[in-house]
Amino acid sequence: MFRSEWDPFRVCDLLRFIGTETLGEVYTMSSEEDATVREPLDLIRLSLDERIYVKLRSDRELRGKLHAFDQHLNMILGDVEEVITTVEIDDETYEEIVRTTKRNIQFLFVRGDGVILVSPPLRAP
């Protein structure tokens, strides 16, 4: 290895860069866990059963445990905290007043078309 840390991103990319497709396959087959990130959705797959952060349209954010997802980013989250951010303008001072509303939901299905960003927990080194 060129790096002291095991970093699947870089090893994977290195193999692709060299263009040794056979090597790439050997690499995939030998890793039983398949902890490689070869396409963006792998990042979500590796977050199953972990708490994730989801940024949604209309200024909503969710934090919850990922129980299921599909290619549309439809998801089922558990122990969810939803934060809604609203900005009001003060009538007199014209100042922006930022308010956040929080609520908790035990199990929630989220339709994928509202998803902007998903961030998994920081993975252990």
């Binding site: 952060y53 994928g112 078309d113 902007i116 993975r123």
Partner: peptide, 11 residues
């Protein structure tokens, strides 16, 4: 800041 981030392509 996010360590890793997935961004849905339609955005």
């Amino acid at each position: 800041k996010y360590g890793d981030a997935f961004i849905r392509g339609n955005n």
